Computed example of a mutant assay.
Amino acid sequence: MLAFHVAAGHLDELVAAAPSHGWRLLFGDRHPFAGGRDHRAAYLEDADGFEVELVAR
């Protein structure tokens, strides 16, 4: 998994655009707090199984 920091205001925008670029949201039932109450992030996976974490700053 690779993690990227993103501006907090852009996290939801990036998650919304992800499917049109071949990415799907992981842990959607816990998004955006799948990493914990104080960790706002999105976990995404592509069709090849590559995973990224977008961490809101």
Rank of each mutant, 00 (worst) to 15 (best):
A3D: 07
F4N: 08
F4C: 08
H5E: 15
V6I: 12
V6T: 10
V6S: 12
V6C: 14
A7W: 03
A7L: 11
A8M: 06
A8H: 12
A8T: 15
A8I: 11
G9Q: 09
G9F: 05
G9H: 07
H10V: 05
L11N: 13
L11A: 09
E13D: 15
E13L: 13
L14A: 10
L14F: 10
L14E: 08
A16Y: 01
A16S: 12
A16I: 02
A16E: 13
A17W: 05
A17G: 10
A18F: 08
A18W: 06
P19H: 13
S20V: 03
S20N: 12
H21R: 15
H21Q: 14
H21Y: 10
H21P: 00
H21D: 08
W23A: 03
R24D: 02
R24S: 11
L25Y: 08
L26A: 11
L26N: 11
L26W: 05
F27A: 12
G28C: 01
G28H: 07
G28P: 00
G28N: 03
D29F: 01
H31E: 05
H31L: 04
P32T: 00
P32V: 00
F33M: 03
F33D: 02
A34V: 03
A34C: 07
A34R: 13
A34E: 12
G35P: 00
G36S: 09
G36E: 05
G36F: 02
R37S: 08
R37K: 10
D38T: 14
H39C: 15
R40T: 15
R40C: 11
R40H: 12
A41N: 14
A41G: 04
A41R: 15
A42R: 11
Y43H: 15
E45K: 02
E45M: 07
D46T: 05
D46I: 02
D46G: 04
A47S: 13
A47Q: 12
A47D: 14
A47K: 09
A47M: 06
